[in-house]
Amino acid sequence: MERCNECIRCTVDNCRHHHNTKNYCTLDAIQVGTHEGNPTMDQCTDCKSFNIK
């Protein structure tokens, strides 16, 4: 069974690291970044660990 990291909640179910049955990530840690020069809202941030299934 795939282990989930209950410290990292995630609802992006088309990511390779998303748990199959729970809204958690299976990675031990993730990298968070931005696509903006001066981020001011949560929409400006990205999970850089995202990997499409």
Rank of each mutant, 00 (worst) to 15 (best):
8 I>M: 07
13 D>Y: 14
40 T>C: 05
34 T>L: 03
16 R>Q: 07
21 T>F: 15
44 C>Y: 07
4 C>G: 14
8 I>K: 02
53 K>W: 05
41 M>W: 13
41 M>A: 09
28 D>C: 03
14 N>T: 15
37 G>M: 03
42 D>P: 01
27 L>G: 13
34 T>W: 13
24 Y>C: 15
6 E>P: 04
35 H>T: 11
3 R>I: 10
14 N>V: 15
27 L>F: 01
37 G>Y: 02
30 I>S: 12
29 A>P: 00
31 Q>C: 07
53 K>Q: 03
33 G>H: 00
6 E>R: 01
19 H>C: 11
45 T>P: 02
48 K>G: 10
48 K>L: 10
39 P>I: 03
14 N>G: 07
44 C>V: 04
51 N>C: 14
33 G>A: 01
31 Q>S: 12
17 H>S: 02
40 T>I: 07
6 E>V: 11
23 N>I: 08
28 D>A: 03
14 N>R: 00
19 H>T: 11
8 I>N: 01
11 T>H: 14
1 M>Y: 02
26 T>R: 00
49 S>C: 00
23 N>F: 13
48 K>A: 09
20 N>Q: 08
36 E>N: 05
50 F>P: 06
9 R>H: 14
31 Q>K: 06
22 K>C: 03
48 K>D: 08
8 I>V: 14
25 C>M: 09
6 E>G: 05
27 L>A: 10
5 N>D: 12
10 C>W: 11
40 T>P: 04
22 K>N: 08
16 R>V: 06
12 V>Y: 12
14 N>W: 09
21 T>S: 08
17 H>V: 10
20 N>G: 13
28 D>S: 05
9 R>Y: 15
14 N>P: 03
50 F>N: 04
46 D>Y: 11
50 F>D: 06
26 T>M: 12
47 C>D: 06
10 C>S: 12
34 T>A: 02
2 E>W: 03
21 T>D: 10
18 H>G: 02
47 C>S: 08
10 C>K: 04
13 D>R: 01
25 C>Q: 04
18 H>P: 00
9 R>A: 15
53 K>I: 15
44 C>H: 15
48 K>I: 05
20 N>T: 10
23 N>A: 14
17 H>F: 06
40 T>F: 07
51 N>Y: 06
1 M>E: 13
52 I>H: 00
2 E>K: 06
3 R>E: 08
19 H>Q: 03
43 Q>P: 05
21 T>N: 04
2 E>S: 11
35 H>G: 12
13 D>E: 13
24 Y>L: 14
38 N>M: 03
51 N>D: 12
48 K>H: 10
8 I>H: 02
33 G>V: 00
44 C>L: 02
25 C>D: 11
49 S>N: 02
42 D>R: 03
37 G>E: 13
1 M>V: 10
2 E>H: 06
21 T>K: 00
16 R>D: 11
10 C>R: 00
24 Y>K: 02
29 A>S: 13
10 C>Y: 07
10 C>F: 12
49 S>F: 04
53 K>A: 09
42 D>M: 11
11 T>A: 14
24 Y>H: 14
19 H>P: 02
50 F>E: 05
34 T>I: 06
15 C>H: 00
7 C>P: 07
21 T>V: 10
42 D>E: 10
27 L>R: 10
45 T>V: 01
53 K>M: 14
5 N>W: 02
32 V>K: 09
15 C>Q: 01
33 G>I: 00
4 C>S: 13
18 H>S: 03
22 K>D: 15
